[in-house]
Design a protein around this nucleic acid. Structure first.
Length: 602
DNA sequence: ATGGGTCCT
DNA sequence: AGGACCC
């Protein structure tokens, strides 16, 4: 028995798993000598990366939201287009950007869901992310429906278990292996300690990826059983390669890619159009086309530094960009999987291609509508990531192309906000309406800076964006002991908490939340305290703020935001007048004591 | 297409 | 502030 499995293992290692040439006919241009050049270092590389991609994500979300739709044709609509559909609908021939009209003709049975509000999708996406995060701390989000997971560590851990002479590991890759037609999942071997020593890079790499493929299956299974989402995935040594094979078998399947020269030749044939390479986008493709370069093979022959074409490439790209592009065409991508935290920005945008915006009144109306959407999104963000301060706010817009042939101008204007408190009492909804008006006012002020009064304009896009700061209470471990909630603990609590339980700092800063996170009064840094007192802050508040913040500017921000305080806030004297002035200039209503406050200190 | 996001100059 | 990439 043992002999038998050992023999199978040898077989698998030597011939079947890593054949010298896979597939018979050549699908496209034969693999290049250049691919052979990159293969050794890829096989020697030690990373194991998963690219997991939810199948027709929005449509699946709708099936989860409306269980009776499961398995029946479903389309998701935005504006007048059906932007995606489930596989039942695709079976009727429905394609990605079909108009509502066309879809109804192809499939009268179809149920159309409105997919303009992304809140629910965002929440399921976050849950899928959290599942993956149980296997690795390095999980990177790419849009709502995709994650990269670096499982190198975990693979190494499981690999190490093989060194225990008592422990045998069942080893088999799970799912497909590019570019083989049959699934390899059935092969199963038992490996013992000594076997690993003799492996060459290719076999060792395959063994790691096989372990990774098992981990990948575990993660996808958990996402399916806990959330109900099916996914497809790629397993390889880099984000690029994992991503490129992830879509090879869909839906609900996974593919391992071992970067041998011949397989690379298949995945990145010389005649592959450049835009198929992840990392080479629209702009680069345009520029390359102007230079007569259309395929990866052409990139590779053009990008040799001594060649004559190289000079022409340098007119459009810098040397660094060319190196990156060359590497990608060779299948080399060293970019790390970056642990995605909470989103850093949040934006909303409306476009007006059909009926452009031409008057101040229209601008105001649209900014009001955008402000409403923005608040909704921020609330959803709070639900998922806890309350965070909002230090920046920006408006951007796109003008129509000028009639005399000029290109469409764009503009962006940002303001730093001393604080931008979007807070409310637990369970209370009422303030958001006033907040909406205040945000629209800020936005209009920015608009005025971009487009002076009286100047005519024709707008096609309006966009509002806020930038988040660190979670309150997450300020480094400067403060003492356990009295300040740790970032992770409060984040975890907030993630589970219903809306009403989220710790909110109300604008007066004297709510329960403020009290709970008030650390012991610090007696340190008397000079910094003095600075804050001279700005008009109460001494005790200044001390507490400094205990939570590293530096004076942060402390100022916190104090202006209303916390920390156990007594009613007094605004710093100097600022009262200047703010009133600005308020007048901007024609903004004065914020009321109990309401949300936006301090404008630019 | 649309309406988000990220990172690098 | 703008541009490039991604979904």
């Amino acid at each position: 028995m043992a002999v038998e499995t050992e023999r199978r293992w040898r077989n698998i290692l030597t011939s079947q798993m890593i054949p010298e040439a896979c597939g018979e006919g050549k699908l496209s241009e034969p693999s290049t000598a250049r691919a052979a050049a990159s293969s050794p270092e890829l096989l020697a590389a030690s990373r194991c990366i998963l690219a997991i991609d939810m199948d027709c994500f929005y449509a699946q979300c709708e099936e989860i939201r409306h269980p009776h739709l499961k398995g029946r044709p479903v389309g998701v609509q935005q504006k007048m287009l059906v932007i995606t559909s489930n596989y039942a609908a695709r079976a009727c021939g429905i394609k990605k950007g079909d108009s509502l009209q066309v879809v109804r003709e192809k499939c009268p049975e179809i149920t159309i869901c409105n997919g303009e509000d992304l809140t629910f999708y965002g929440e399921l996406s976050q849950r899928a992310f959290d599942v993956a995060a149980r296997w690795s701390s390095k999980v990177e989000k790419l849009g709502l429906d995709e994650v990269f997971v670096d499982v190198t560590e975990l693979v190494a851990e499981r690999f190490r278990a093989l060194d225990d002479p008592e422990a045998c590991l069942r080893l088999a890759s799970t799912g497909h292996e590019y570019p083989k037609e049959s699934e390899s999942g059935s092969s199963e071997v038992r490996v013992r300690q000594g076997d690993w020593k003799d492996l060459d890079d290719a076999h060792r790499c395959w063994a790691r990826l096989a372990l990774a493929s098992e981990i990948c299956r575990e993660i996808r299974e958990a996402i399916l059983s806990e959330i109900g989402l099916t996914s497809s995935a790629g397993i390889s040594v880099s984000k690029q390669l994992a991503k490129m094979v992830s879509s090879w078998k869909k839906p609900s399947q996974q593919t391992l890619f071992l970067p041998t020269a011949d397989r690379l030749g298949h995945l990145l044939p010389d005649d592959l159009p450049v835009q198929k390479v992840p990392g080479i986008g629209f702009a680069s493709t345009q520029k390359l086309h102007e230079l007569g370069v259309r395929t990866t093979g052409e990139v590779l022959s053009a990008v040799v530094p001594e060649g004559e074409e190289y000079g022409r490439l340098l007119t459009e790209f810098d040397a660094g960009a060319l190196r990156t592009m060359k590497a990608l065409c060779l299948g080399i991508d060293a970019s790390p999987v970056k642990a995605s935290g909470a989103p850093k920005t949040c934006s909303v945008q409306d476009s007006f291609w059909q009926g452009p915006v031409r008057t101040d009144v229209q601008v105001r109306d649209n900014l009001l509508a955008l402000a409403q959407k923005l608040i909704t999104k921020i609330r959803s963000d709070e639900r998922m990531y806890g309350y965070r301060p909002i230090p920046t706010f920006s408006l951007s817009l796109m003008h129509a192309p000028s009639s005399d042939g000029g290109a469409a101008r764009r503009g962006r204007k940002q303001m730093q906000l001393g604080s931008f408190q979007i807070a409310r009492q637990p369970g209370e909804q009422g303030d958001d309406e006033r907040l909406q008006g205040q945000i629209a006012d800020r936005a209009f002020a920015l608009f005025r800076k971009l487009v002076p009064a009286e100047e005519p304009f024709v707008l096609h896009i309006l966009n509002l964006q806020v930038g988040f700061g660190e979670a309150l209470g997450a300020q480094r471990r400067l403060s003492f002991g356990a009295s300040a909630p740790s970032a992770t603990a409060s984040a975890a609590a907030q993630l589970q908490a219903p809306v009403e339980d989220i710790e909110l700092t109300d604008s007066d800063g004297d709510g329960e939340a403020g009290r709970n996170q008030t650390p012991p009064v610090s007696t340190e840094r008397p000079d910094a305290v003095a600075t804050l007192v001279s700005m008009g802050f109460a001494q005790d508040r200044a001390q507490r703020a400094l205990a939570q913040c590293c530096d004076v500017p942060r402390a100022v921000e916190m104090l202006l935001a209303g916390g920390p305080s156990s007594s009613p806030t007094r605004l710093p004297r100097r600022d009262v007048s200047s703010r009133a002035e600005k308020r007048q200039r901007l024609n903004c209503p004065a914020p009321e004591a109990s309401g949300a406050i936006i301090d404008l200190l630019d």
